[in-house]
């Protein structure tokens, strides 16, 4: 056996600048995430141009910190992995450009990772044994996708959102309720104190038999209208009740579709991924339902649910094992789907 393989993972697809060093695709030696939340706060959402500027500003320092925390030098690395899509093009370009010139100057393989696949691979950092085939649900600010994975690199999209992502709706409603940005986690905590049956919000596409797509724009509009209606009537809005009722509607749909997928595919494991995977209610309810079906729920450690470099490095490790390397003309692909390496 030679030296253990260390991969540097770079992540700049949205508003977090992140770098990490991961050993053999499993052991996190370091993970640095520089959050831009305070810069986007006055705008109530991520401003792409500001995100791109922030990434460029901190990227060298984040890289330095990741190496230092891992106690390694560039010369110890075995590859450079980077998220090249999907995401905000200006943000992606910073990470992709830095990763390319780093890999070239260090004579290392360049690995272009699908950001969503990265989220799935956060589950490989738990130490749990992962067995294929498996199902995975990615729920984040930008994405809601239900995937079937036959093996590394063999991914089939079973369903995805037709409009808003679940996390996006969380943030929008949190903003409307005056919970700040990003408000998802605050809303989750607030919901814990409310009555989930106080309001009845729509569960979209649940009626469509066997269909695994999602739609969250309906529940978003319903909640926003409800807040407005209550305010106009001059009623004191019970924030906790609204949060709980909204969360109930979203979680019920997510869990319902997950169950449908499990019954179709009968895998042994179900991997939860993405920022909303940290949501307490979703974790609990999914666990209950899956246990009844005899399916094991695997969830990433909370710190690797949101965007981070470690998940990119972990995915990159398996890409490298299969020899799926990127060329020096790699470009950012903002609307990247699953499939072979895209480079246009």
């Amino acid at each position: 056996m030679g030296q253990p393989l260390l991969i540097l993972g770079l992540e700049t697809s949205c508003d977090d600048t992140a770098a990490a060093v991961v050993q053999e695709g499993r052991t996190v030696l370091s993970s640095i995430v520089s959050s831009q939340d305070s810069f986007h706060l006055p705008f109530g959402g991520v401003v792409p141009e500001i995100a791109s500027r922030c990434h460029l500003e901190v990227i060298n320092a984040v890289l330095d910190a990741a190496l230092k925390q891992a106690g390694v030098a560039f010369s110890d690395l075995g590859g450079v992995a980077v998220s090249y899509g999907p995401g905000l093009v200006g943000s992606l370009l910073v990470g992709v450009s830095v990763a390319k010139s780093l890999a070239y100057t260090l004579d290392l393989p360049l690995i272009a990772v699908n950001h969503l696949e990265g989220h799935i691979y956060a589950n490989f950092l738990t130490g749990a044994a992962i067995t294929f085939p498996l199902l995975s649900l990615i729920v984040s600010g930008g994405h809601t996708s239900l995937l079937y994975m036959e093996d590394h690199g063999q991914i089939k999209v079973l369903g995805k959102t037709r409009d808003d992502a679940a996390g996006e709706v969380y943030d929008k409603i949190a903003r409307e309720l005056g919970l700040g940005f990003p408000g998802g986690p605050v809303l989750d905590r607030l919901a814990g104190r409310g009555d989930a049956t106080a309001f009845s919000f729509p569960r979209a596409l649940m009626g469509e038999k066997g269909k695994l797509d999602f739609s969250f724009s309906g529940v978003k509009t319903a909640v926003l209208n409800c807040i407005r209606r209550e305010t106009e009537k001059g009623r004191q809005i019970n924030l906790a009740d609204i949060a709980a009722s909204f969360q109930e509607a979203v979680v019920e749909v997510l869990v319902g579709k997950a169950l449908l997928a499990v019954r179709q595919k009968r895998t042994k494991q179900f991997l939860l991924a993405g920022g909303v995977a940290a949501n307490s209610q979703l974790r609990k309810r999914l666990e209950q339902v899956l246990t009844r079906e005899g399916v094991e729920l695997v969830r990433p450690p909370v710190e690797y649910c949101t965007d981070n470099g470690a998940m990119v490095a972990a995915a990159g490790y398996y890409y490298l094992q299969r020899g799926r390397l990127a060329a020096w003309n790699l470009n950012a692909v903002p609307n990247l789907g699953f499939g072979p390496l895209k480079n246009k």
Binding site: E49, S52, R53, L56, I59, N60, L63, D64, F74, V89, G90, L93, V94, G95, S97, V98, A99, K100, S101, L102, Y104, T105, L106
Partner: peptide, 19 residues
């Protein structure tokens, strides 16, 4: 171009840090 500037600078930053 903002994007153009960043592609040049990000490439330069990676290049200089690597070397």
């Amino acid at each position: 171009s903002f994007t153009g500037i960043r592609i040049g600078l990000a490439t330069a930053k990676g290049f200089c840090q690597g070397l």
